[in-house]
């Protein structure tokens, strides 16, 4: 018998005498609440990320403020804002990306309650490696992309797309459970909340 058939038979055997009547799951926790952009800003800042708010037509200026002078920045296809001097991602290798200082992207969702940004890596957000290897991630979140909480985020995300949930810069608590920001992922996260 194949391992697959053996395991499935084992599962069947294990549950032969079990009471399999369904347990009721209350979904009251999904009650919708209004999204609070102020809370989103506060919570992102709690992770020691830099957050700035601006009008939609100021985004390009704020991106430029966020990038250090002479920083080599990479941008994904489909980014709706111009980033002068940046290189486009045309399939750069990991080593190439390691030589880049910063990446500028949009996002799909912002979660107010947890201060989380979710990328689903479509146009304007780029493939996953792009927002991983460079040390500074400048991420633009439109105020209308902010939802109240985690359940609201799942409701708008597409499971067929890869997603990356970003809550602050990379961090570790592995040494005496003291939190240190800045490990393998971007050590700096700069969030521009627009609109």
């Amino acid at each position: 018998m194949s391992a697959r058939d053996d395991i499935l038979a084992g599962v069947r055997r294990a549950l032969r005498e079990a009471d399999t009547s369904p347990v009721h799951v209350s979904r009251g926790y999904r009650d919708t609440r209004p999204a609070d952009v102020h809370l989103f800003v506060e919570r992102v800042e709690d992770y020691r990320a830099v957050v700035v708010r601006c009008a939609l037509d100021e985004v390009e200026a704020r991106i430029s403020d966020a990038l250090p002078r002479d920083a080599r920045a990479v941008v994904p296809d489909g980014l709706p804002w111009r980033v002068p001097g940046s290189v486009a991602d045309d399939g750069l290798s990991a080593l190439d990306l390691d030589d880049v200082d910063a990446v500028v992207t949009g996002a799909t969702v912002g979660i107010a309650e947890t201060g989380t940004i979710v990328l689903s890596h479509g146009p304007g957000e780029g493939r996953r490696a792009l927002t991983l290897v460079p040390d500074l991630h400048v991420c633009v979140v439109r105020a209308d992309q902010v939802v109240a909480d985690v359940p609201d985020a799942f409701a708008v995300l597409d499971p067929d797309r890869p997603t990356t949930w970003v809550s602050g810069p990379s961090a570790t608590s592995d040494i005496e459970l003291d939190r240190v920001e800045g490990v393998h992922g971007p050590r700096r996260l700069h969030v521009i909340v627009a609109g």
Binding site: R43, D46, Y47, G91, I111, E113, T114, G115, T116, H121, R127, R128, A129, V150, P159, D160, R161, P162, T163, T164, W165, V166, S167, G168, P169, S170, A171, S173, G185
Partner: peptide
């Protein structure tokens, strides 16, 4: 787990994404 509202990174993926990963 870590006593955070959310951990810094969560990755989700469904099989192979052409051109990504």
């Amino acid at each position: 787990s870590t006593g955070e509202r959310m951990n810094p990174y969560t990755s989700t993926w469904s099989g192979v994404t052409p051109g990504d990963g």
